[in-house]
Design a protein around this nucleic acid. Structure first.
Lengths: 341, 341
DNA sequence: TTGTGAATTGTAAATGCTTACACCTCAGAT
DNA sequence: ATCTGAGGTGTAAGCATTTACAATTCACAA
């Protein structure tokens, strides 16, 4: 079943059939109707391969994320996929894992499938060294590369991100404003965003005239984010005799670990301890007490990323290389920040 | 950059280059090495479109799931994608939503991209009427269709699922064994699995000689699963004067709603009320008290589905049309089922 | 009637690969 | 010296589209 069958059935040439399929205007209404009827009747679908061969595009975008079982990344993938579909693009998904070589392999695979662009979801695609970014710069020579919640300044690379540092700065300032002086920052090494947020934490302390105590900054070095790891980390901190009246975390899961610790230790939240999470997902509503968190506007980020990409495809020269959104603090029961700004 | 460039560079014909690329054995070692070197040097990648045009396959599998921001489905997608990649297949993801027409459209789209198979993830692809399944049967005429956590008996359709009804049966029997007689079953209408589980609940009561009270079976009819909906549902049940000492739910999120209700109502868990969730995800560990849940072996399901698909591709005639896994009850703090079987 | 040009349609080349078939080479058997 | 066949390689025919360009039609003006 191909374009020739339609051509035979209708008596017009394949070129005209092709023109009808592609909505070209140079076809008489009569012919168009006849062809459309034949296509409908025979249930014909154009062959994407042949089409791709000529046009060198299949209207498919590669999405890379480290692990789409992570609720944050899963939501991002969801929003992006939805938005792409609206623009009649499909999504070739690649869960790369956190290993650099695997990321590179996945990129190669996506490019070999001739995707029209690549979207990198999550801050873990920001590498420390220039060298590790090479494969991304290389990809950008072929197709546009979009970062969601990440950033890279290079030709043909566009970034959409949330100012996480500013959000954590705000949270920290608010904690301090409410009398919390002994703050702990808890983050993990999976993605770069924990580090980005840390600068917000540091700056807030600095601007409040409070010295940063390095032993109050706690990095959890693990291959996944777990409640248990966070609980153990904060418990061992307490055991070392480090006192604190506020814990700010880079992820809701970590914050839940802190809540578990507090419950075991008989610490009352928010009276004796403020706790703030990040991401504002299901669990922040499920835990007890319900968790103050930060909504980092993931949906907006994703929508904006896709619409930027469409502008790039449309060859719109005024496309911003980088767009930054502001996060929003969602107060629940683990803090009492009555005069939130 | 195409196969002719490699041909020119090496002096061998494009046929030989093709043979090297495809690992054909009829090439001398010397020629192979020469071609491989040229490919490496020029950074050549075969064009998938041209290849697909000839072979009519692109080694790509379509994955349909209603909503990959749902943690359950996201995890499934993750496992499937991983497993497919191991078998050198890529994943074209389509988040279809819960609307029937949209599902059909997405299927059409996937088929038009000439995927080699379609995997339907989640029990919401089981439709009440035969008529609604037509698009699936149609797809199965072209490519194998795989159900994960769903079931359809038709040619070229393969199902992998977990015996959710049996798991809920077990949970219910255990509740009863521990003296809980007034049980409520809480489920939602999003997917068919809630209904499947309900039969397990009914059977357990029946087999225990306890009459099923229809007003103890509570269906939440909403477009998403939320803690708040569940909390309201169970609260209104209590307000109606319905007494209960155990709540069994079709999803962890719903169970958290019950926990919230109990906390507000001053009901002690598990002393006065047993609660069980389903899916055994993050939140079951995050809530307070930690939730007894059911692990429905999602990873095993997904792995099995992909390996079945590979057998189908290999034309293995002994592939089972349907495989059923057993779930496992994970006891935490919302029950005290000390003599769990 | 004939010419003009716009609208419509057809022809054929191009896209990059796989593979059936034909051909060549050369070691070893006769 | 000639034959045989296996192993290696090349030629060319698909595969299903798109599209530049050529050709045709036809309304309308001269």
């Amino acid at each position: 079943m191909n374009i020739y069958d339609i051509s035979n059935k209708t008596g017009v040439s394949i070129a005209t059939v092709s023109r009808v399929i592609n909505g070209s205007s140079n076809v008489s209404d009569k012919t168009r109707a006849k062809v459309l009827a034949a296509i409908e009747e025979l249930g014909y679908t154009p062959n994407v391969f042949a089409r791709g061969l000529g046009l060198n595009t299949m209207k498919t975008i590669g999405i890379m994320c480290a692990d789409c079982s992570d609720p944050y990344l899963a939501r991002a993938v969801y929003y992006i996929e939805q938005e792409l579909r609206k623009n009649s693009y499909d999504s070739l998904l690649s869960c790369t894992g956190y290993d650099h070589d695997d990321k590179e392999k996945c990129m190669t695979m996506l490019l070999s499938k001739r995707v029209d662009a690549v979207i990198l979801v999550g801050s873990n695609y920001i590498e420390a060294s220039e060298d590790l970014n090479k494969y991304i710069l290389n990809a950008a020579k072929t197709v546009p590369v979009m970062f969601v919640n990440g950033e890279l300044n290079a030709p043909n690379v566009y970034s959409t991100l949330c100012d996480d540092a500013a959000a954590i700065y705000e949270v920290t300032r608010n904690f301090i404003k409410h009398g919390k002086k002994n703050l702990v920052y808890l983050y993990n090494s999976l993605s770069y965003s924990g580090t980005r947020k840390l600068t917000g934490f540091r700056n807030a302390l600095k601007d409040s005239g409070i010295p940063v105590q390095e032993n109050h900054i706690c990095l959890i070095d693990s291959h996944g984010i777990t409640v248990q790891d966070a609980k153990e980390a904060i418990t061992s901190l307490a055991k070392k005799g480090i006192e604190f009246d506020g814990v700010i975390t880079s992820d809701d899961i970590l914050a839940v670990g802190v809540l578990k610790y507090a419950k075991d230790a008989g610490i009352s939240i928010p009276d004796d301890l403020f706790v703030a999470g990040y991401n504002n997902f299901d669990i922040s509503e499920c835990c007890e007490p319900e968790l103050t968190s930060v909504d980092n506007k993931l949906e907006s980020l994703c929508r904006h990323c896709v619409s930027t990409l469409m502008s790039v495809f449309a060859d719109d020269k005024s496309v911003p290389k980088k767009t930054v959104f502001s996060a929003e603090i969602i107060e629940r029961k683990t803090t009492s920040l009555t005069i939130l700004q």
